[in-house]
Design a protein around this nucleic acid. Sequence first.
DNA 1: AACATGCATTGAACATGTTCAGAATTCTCT
DNA 2: AGAGAATTCTGAACATGTTCAATGCATGTT
Lengths: 233, 233
Amino acid sequence: MFKEVSNGSSSITKSAGEHTRALILKIALELFRLRGFEVTTMRDIASAAKVATGAAYYYFPSKEAIVSTYYDQVQRLHADKVVEDLKGKTALRERLGVVFHSKLEIVKEDRRFLGALFRYTGDSEHPLSVFGKGTQSQRTQSMAIFREAISVPGLSEEMQQILPAALWLAHLGMILSLIYDESEGQRKTHKLVDGVLDLLAQAIDLSSTVFVRPFVQPFQTKVLQMLQDSGWA
Amino acid sequence: MFKEVSNGSSSITKSAGEHTRALILKIALELFRLRGFEVTTMRDIASAAKVATGAAYYYFPSKEAIVSTYYDQVQRLHADKVVEDLKGKTALRERLGVVFHSKLEIVKEDRRFLGALFRYTGDSEHPLSVFGKGTQSQRTQSMAIFREAISVPGLSEEMQQILPAALWLAHLGMILSLIYDESEGQRKTHKLVDGVLDLLAQAIDLSSTVFVRPFVQPFQTKVLQMLQDSGWA
DNA sequence: AACATGCATTGAACATGTTCAGAATTCTCT
DNA sequence: AGAGAATTCTGAACATGTTCAATGCATGTT
């Protein structure tokens, strides 16, 4: 359904098309940021980029697909940043903080159009549905970042399989919180993230304790079983 | 933003308008069920109801609002059913089962258009956004049902405040699962619900144990604090 | 009956996302 | 250079959600 990304890793010279594509993307994002996603029309974008309306559709299958492409960039940026910032950090809490806050930083200014990512949440068939098949590879990539972040010694086998999916879901929640967060500088979302991570890290620590572990273990096993049954782990 | 519901609790005689409204609603839902939400146009609905296109908009501010009205009915049905079925049931697990499965039963056949409820998930301003201000009262109502279901002796004060929001969110997840569930009779979702409820009930039981409680208590307190900070409890 | 008032309904017009047949341009190979 | 192919781009047309001025219609009032 998606146009081939063909992000010329092979050629050094940008073809004319790549240039136009980048221009349309850049201008669209500027307009989304400036005026918001809904009120910005494809005609606005095209005319601001000095091309015909149809040109935008030559490069992007839909208006939301522009945001989706932006989000691909975000994922790449995030992956790179995380690899860098995680070096030398060994404490689980710290590592989780890196992953979540760096994502938040990258995305912070784009609340006005991040919501477009959720446009097809209720449409399981749509290629851009957050939970759909069309976005599976991006989901897997994103979960790989979380898997990397939690790769610290002392974590149970079950937890290692459960957490990537759980954290991915939690991070979706973070983005939603950001979108709805009217507080200055989105303070509330930052605070929420820290609170959740504190709790989570403590809970994980606690669950590894010799006293508590026997009680928690069967739960982990069952959760993992359920995730596997539904294709999440 | 919404048209006054004015569900004539005062008058016995349906005015002409009420009749048309009901007709449009009925026919719209039939078409949604039969062909799906997206492919059914407002023109289809209007012409099937033998009215002009504009008539539909006299009663419903948008296509999604039709589904929203349907969902109001669902909530009412659910509330009634739960009140009935909860009588005499005292075990937490059983009560949770009643609430979740009765909802599932009510909604089961309508997967084709339930997704419309999530159309504005990413648009915090929209009156029909699941998490938005425009749907707050419905959320509160729904949470009240869960509050009722968990009103059993032996539940900590914190849990009583945390669970309604948590269960409401979980039940949203259930609906999403249903929408994406291709398995025959949506077996997977039923199984998932049972699995989650089993775990939850066990976890709640365990957390009330004298041995475990001291460990869990501070977590509950912090979670509650966070929910309160963000307006969820 | 004639009139006034407000609810109900119409259908054309509008806005905007999207499609598409073709034109323009660029690239490739001889 | 020039023919042909592939890529890029155009802009009008289309589909559909939505708006709205105008009209009909029922009901109560004089």
